[in-house]
Design a protein around this nucleic acid. Structure first.
Lengths: 177, 177
DNA sequence: GTTAAAATAAGCGTGTACGCTATAAAACTA
DNA sequence: TAGTTTTATAGCGTACACGCTTATTTTAAC
């Protein structure tokens, strides 16, 4: 820290001793210095780490080692909504349109779903569960509960409710334009 | 729920994309049935959506459209720690070892960092900031503050403290074996 | 004490999966 | 016909697992 601070003086951007031009009005009394910005305390960094930890827990605790969290979510969405088009699954799962195609391909390759085209709208690809897919969901759900439990391990019941509430509230907020 | 879901195939389930009305899931009475498992209320799903929203906000608000959040975190880590080996950066950034190489490659290609080999340990690759890299960080930090602000938009000050606290606490917990 | 073998550490290559942007083609709708 | 919706395709970036090479450190033998 001190080493980098000294280096800042030596070869840093010493050329501009504050041209007094602020690109953004700072929301509070945040100083314009860069030294107090700690990336490891930012919401984005914490979210990334939390999600990565969850993914690791999922992989270790899924009853099927090939099944990913997103694949499981997609299977659940098909079960809950019945035969669905890709666009419907995109909305239900919050998986990107370009990404869902790969998911569907892999689930199809494992015969967990079937694909058909809607005779009433020939653009649509209708996704359906196979018996194997339905069985896998049934087998997986207890493991999924455990995965949730393990991900929230370390938080007491009140804190668990709180973080679910706060994440839902964040997600309801639309990303600006 | 299940009965109506299977009837959704009449193509008229347009009621889905309506705003979310979600009661609190009670952790107490969880039967072993699969019908009450709602993937969209699970911590993993909420974390994935929250992080994706943050990434979208980052992309729209970075001063450099090519710079990703992870790349920025890596640059910050080099600035904070001084010349660093890849392994040190892996620990500092929580970016996978195989992934950091791609990050470093792209930062190097843009001349934001330099690579050298440590004469004292010839296994090591030492990463250093260039002047351009240092300048980019300086320019970026105000935007990064705004990105954090926008990601937390919708939460009041107490809630912001709460979610940061809860995510930190979750991340401190080790993923089991 | 020097040296050879074993254990550890750093980094590389490859393969698979997820995520987004941008673009285009096909099918439907007005 | 013009415009919208649905899906397909290409390309880049992030993420992790696996197996591998090379370099350093530790240990054991001598």
């Amino acid at each position: 820290m001190t080493a980098s601070a000294t280096r800042d003086r030596i070869c840093g951007n010493v050329s501009a001793p504050e041209p007094t031009r602020k690109p953004f009005p700072m929301p509070s009394d945040q100083p314009e210095t860069t030294t107090d910005y700690d990336f490891s305390e930012q919401i984005g960094h914490l979210l990334r780490k939390a999600y990565q930890r969850h993914v690791a827990i999922f992989q270790r605790n899924a009853c099927d080692p090939q099944l990913t969290g997103v694949q499981f979510v997609t299977l659940c969405a098909v079960r809950d909504r019945g035969p669905s088009s890709l666009t419907q699954l995109v909305q239900a799962t919050a998986v990107d349109q370009a990404t869902i195609r790969g998911i569907i391909e892999r689930l199809k390759a494992r015969d967990l779903i079937t694909l058909a085209s809607d005779p009433e709208d020939r653009r649509k690809v209708v996704v359906n569960l196979t018996d194997a897919g339905r069985t896998l969901i049934e087998d997986m759900v207890p493991h999924a509960r455990r995965i949730t439990e393990l991900t929230l391990d370390g938080l007491n019941p009140a804190e668990r409710l709180a973080i679910l509430f706060l994440l839902r509230k964040m997600n309801e907020q639309e990303p600006p334009e």
